[in-house]
C-alpha cells in the first residue's frame, strides 16, 4: 500500500452505565459522550437544527435549558418526536439519545458565573478595550472570534477562563486558523469557514469573507494555534481575568 497509515490515537473510553428508564442523563458532562453526541447530532439533527444547533429550518436548541427544560424532557422529545411537525420519533438506543442530549446541553449550559468573584463593570471596560476588535459583544464588535453576546448562558466560568488563558486548547469549528499561500508567495491568514477538495472559504484577519479555489493557491496551511493571543497571567493578571469572566457571565442573549 502506498498511502499513509492511520496513526493510532488513544481516546477516552467511557465506562457505560445502564441506561434503561433513566430520568437523569448518565452521560451528563461526559467529554467522550459529548463528542459522540456531536457526531450523532451532525448526522441526524443538523439538517434541520443547524450544525451548531442554533436553528435552521428547525428551532434553536441551545436556548432550551435557559428556558427551563430538563434533560429528560429533551430526551423524550427526541424519542417521541413532535406531532404536527416534521420532527420524527426515534428508535435509536437510549445511550445514543442521551449522548445527543449531553452534547446539546454542553453547548447551551446555563453557567454558574453570576455569583463568581469579580467586578462586572470593570470587566465590561476590559472586554470593550481588549476583546471587541475580534468578538461581537452585545451591540458591537468584530467577527473573527465567536460572538460573546450570550456566552454567559452557554459556557461555564471554568471553560471561559481556560479559553482566555489557552485559546488553542479547544477551537470551535469555524474558528480554526488557516494560512493561504498564493503562487507569488503572499500569505493570507484567517479562520476557515469551510473547505472541500477544491476550495476553501475563510474570514481573513481584516474580517472579510473570501473564497479561494485551491488550484489558485500554492499551499493551504492549517495551523494548530488560535488567532486569539494567549492571555497568560503576565499579560492579563488574575484580577482582570476574574472581572472579565464575571462580566461575560452576565451576557445572556441581548445582542
Amino acid at each position: 500500500m502506498r498511502h499513509t497509515l492511520l496513526s493510532a490515537v488513544a481516546l477516552l473510553v467511557l465506562a457505560a452505565p445502564t441506561v434503561a428508564q433513566q430520568t437523569a442523563n448518565p452521560y451528563d458532562s461526559d467529554p467522550a459522550a459529548m463528542r459522540a453526541g456531536r457526531a450523532l447530532f451532525a448526522n441526524r439533527c443538523a439538517e434541520c437544527h443547524g450544525a451548531d444547533a442554533r436553528g435552521f429550518s428547525g428551532p434553536d436548541l441551545t436556548v432550551l435549558w435557559a428556558e427551563g427544560t430538563s434533560d429528560e424532557r429533551v430526551f423524550q422529545t427526541i424519542r417521541s418526536g413532535v406531532s404536527g411537525s416534521i420532527m420524527p420519533s426515534s428508535t435509536a438506543p437510549d445511550n445514543e439519545i442521551w449522548a445527543m442530549v449531553a452534547y446539546v446541553k454542553s453547548i447551551s449550559t446555563v453557567a454558574a458565573a453570576l455569583d463568581a468573584p469579580g467586578d462586572p463593570e470593570r470587566g465590561q471596560e476590559l472586554v470593550q478595550a481588549r476583546c471587541t476588535r475580534c468578538h461581537y459583544v452585545a451591540g458591537g464588535g468584530g467577527y473573527l472570534g465567536p460572538d460573546l453576546s450570550r456566552i454567559g448562558a452557554v459556557r461555564t466560568r471554568e471553560s471561559l477562563m481556560r479559553s482566555i488563558r489557552e485559546p488553542a486548547a479547544s477551537i470551535q469549528p469555524g474558528y480554526r486558523t488557516v494560512t493561504l499561500v498564493t503562487p507569488s508567495g503572499d500569505r493570507i491568514r484567517g479562520v476557515a469557514k469551510g473547505e472541500d477538495a477544491f476550495s476553501v472559504q475563510i474570514l481573513d484577519t481584516r474580517q472579510q469573507l473570501r473564497g479561494y479555489m485551491k488550484s489558485d493557491l500554492a499551499e493551504v496551511v492549517r495551523e494548530p494555534v488560535s488567532l486569539m493571543p494567549e492571555f497568560t497571567s503576565a499579560r492579563l493578571p488574575d484580577e482582570d481575568l476574574n472581572d472579565i469572566v464575571r462580566y461575560l457571565g452576565t451576557l445572556r442573549g441581548n445582542r
Partner: peptide, 24 residues
C-alpha cells in the same frame, strides 16, 4: 472506539449492544 453494552430486546427497538465514539 467500540464499547459494548448489554443489549435490550424490545420488539421494534434496536439491540445494538454497544456504543461507539467516533473521533470526527
Amino acid at each position: 472506539t467500540f464499547v459494548k453494552q448489554e443489549p435490550e430486546y424490545v420488539p421494534g427497538r434496536q439491540s445494538t449492544g454497544g456504543v461507539i465514539w467516533i473521533d470526527q
